[in-house]
Amino acid sequence: MLLVDITFWGLSVVAIGAALGVVLVRDLFRAALLLVVVFLAVAGFFVLLSAQFLAVVQVLIYAGAIAILLVFAVMLTKDVPHGNLPNRLQVPAAMVAALLLAVLVAVAAATQWQPVPLAQQEQVAVVQTGSAGLANLLVSDYALAFEAVSVLLLGAAIGALALLRGRPEQAP
């Protein structure tokens, strides 16, 4: 499929470029905006991978909520236009990242992946596109994990509130 390929390579360029921007751009506000671009590009990848539900959730949670929280947090930085400075670990960090990349690429290329049998491909595509299967799985096979995640979210919400609640003022 020509269209899919064009879209894929386009999205790859956008995603990688924006990700590089996030870690290299000095202006923290722009970095946050580029992060949103990364999120949206990943949502695009999800659509290509016939995971529509995930794509929408990605936009809703990452671009709609997490990015906004980060943008708000950016305001804590004193000098936002020059707030995204590197620390002294720049060179070692780059080396570690490059090494890991090499390993990952080697593994991805060298492994013999076992593809979905031709007979079942149609079926798999239908199951993956619809959101009903996912919903079924979440409340049957993965119900325990689902509940654990809800408890975690509740805990996180309460924890964040507790962290941010103003402590009673100490008398000077």
């Binding site: 506000f29 905006l33 949103v36 529509q52 539900f53 929408v56 959730v57 936009v59 809703l60 671009a63 709609g64 909520a65 990015a67 906004i68 943008v71 596109t129 619809g130 959101s131």
Partner: peptide, 25 residues
């Protein structure tokens, strides 16, 4: 005719927040 139409509407409209913040900032 997306099977997740309602969610799509919510997700897309949540992007307005970002635009408003960009404009204001």
């Amino acid at each position: 005719d997306l099977s997740i139409g309602v969610l799509y509407v919510l997700a897309i409209s949540s992007l307005t927040i970002l635009a408003i913040f960009m404009a204001g900032w």
